[in-house]
Amino acid sequence: MAQLGLVVPDELAGFSIDEMVTIAQRAEQRGYHSIWKGETSGTNSFMVLGAIARETEDIRLGTGIANVFSRSPTLLGMSGATLNALSDGRAILGLGVSSPPIVEEWHGQAYERPLRRAREAIEIIRQVLDGDTVEYDGEMFDVGPYSVGFETPSGEVPIFNAAMGERNRQLTGEFADGWMPVFTPLSELGGFATEITSAAADAGRPEPTIAPWVPAAVAEDPSVAKRRVKELLAQEMAMGYNRILATHGYGDSADEAHNRWHDGDREGATDAITDEVVEEFAVYGTPETCREQLAPYYEAGADLPILWPPFTASRGAVEELIDGFAPE
């Protein structure tokens, strides 16, 4: 059966923690592989996933993403190990370098050498998860020797990296267990996946899991579903992801959406998202047709597409999405 993940809508979309737990339970019942909790602001992803862990049995629980600046590598490892213990071995540690606005303005950290920091963080986290003594002398971190303090190793916790740039994708293949990109065009996904698996092979590592985030919506009227993903894309362009789309050749649409959103014209920003952008970066459809929209992702090498509901989606719309895309 094809694997599928879901980004749980959180307080930024108006959902309480109790509602997040209920959404995760529904996803588990419908056969989803994993649930992912974001953390740009709002609630703490590890704590919310810990609450979900106590109310579910099988679904995997991933941070999507925990950035490598706001917590030390040792704390990231401790948090991942704790979540893994709470969930009986279901944790996935989704990491990323985030962006200067979040790191500098929200966390008050200097956004320095992000890729080197990510590499060293992953190496330290692996030592922590081994449950013995951490000792590391790097360019960014000098840690230990210090005892982790676990009575027994926490068990394997996969580490996914939310890489977008070429050098970061290389890092993913060499050091991570999975690649979790955001805003990678479908037409380029296969080539990037091949790059990463080749880097892993060169490093003597297993093939990483390819797990792209995919904006998604379901509605009886396909035009309504398309509008929902355009709204999500427009909002994310306003958050600065227009720069990422520009590197893939979609800068005109992305920049227009960014500028209109910041001018207060959210309808105009949504209108600026072209159908071509939607087809490359999102999936949508009716309950009868939406599942087939994922086939090209699996064909391009995705192992675990992660569906990303629009921020404007109601509880009913999210449930419709879960049911419509549910693995058969």
Rank of each mutant, 00 (worst) to 15 (best):
P181Q: 06
L189V: 00
L115F: 08
E156Y: 14
A200Q: 03
I196R: 01
G96P: 08
R167S: 02
L83A: 07
S187D: 10
M78W: 08
D177N: 04
G96D: 07
P101Q: 10
S79P: 05
T152W: 10
N168T: 14
Q170M: 13
A176W: 05
G191Y: 04
M140A: 11
L76Q: 03
E195F: 04
T82G: 06
R90A: 00
E112V: 12
N168S: 15
I122A: 10
W179T: 00
M180N: 05
H107W: 15
D137F: 07
V148P: 00
V103I: 15
M164I: 13
M140R: 02
S99A: 13
N84K: 10
R126H: 08
E151H: 06
W179V: 00
I125C: 06
R126D: 12
F141I: 12
T172K: 04
L75T: 14
S147M: 10
M164H: 13
R113E: 11
P145C: 09
Q109V: 14
I102T: 10
A85W: 08
E135L: 12
A121D: 12
V182L: 15
R90F: 06
Y136S: 01
D130T: 09
G191C: 06
Y136R: 01
V182S: 08
P153Y: 06
V97R: 11
R116H: 11
G108P: 14
Y136N: 00
M180S: 03
L75G: 01
G178T: 08
G155Q: 07
L75Y: 12
T74K: 05
T82P: 01
E139W: 03
R113D: 13
A163L: 01
I125Q: 01
S72P: 06
T152D: 14
T74P: 02
G96F: 09
S147I: 11
E112L: 11
E139T: 07
F150C: 02
G80M: 03
F192Y: 15
P100S: 01
A176V: 01
R167G: 06
G155F: 10
D177M: 03
V143E: 06
N168F: 13
L95V: 02
V134A: 04
P181N: 05
M180K: 02
I92H: 07
A200G: 04
Q170L: 15
E166M: 12
T197G: 02
F183E: 01
G165Q: 11
F192G: 00
E120N: 12
S98E: 13
A91C: 12
P185G: 08
P153W: 03
A200D: 02
D88P: 05
P114Q: 14
F160S: 00
P185D: 09
E139V: 03
E195S: 12
L186D: 02
P145H: 09
P153C: 07
G191D: 15
T82Y: 02
E188T: 10
L95F: 03
S79G: 11
A200T: 08
P158S: 14
T194P: 01
S87F: 04
F141N: 07
A163Y: 00
A193F: 01
Y111R: 06
F183T: 04
P181A: 07
S154L: 10
S154N: 04
I124A: 08
G89W: 03
R167M: 04
S154E: 08
A200M: 06
G138L: 07
E105F: 15
I102E: 11
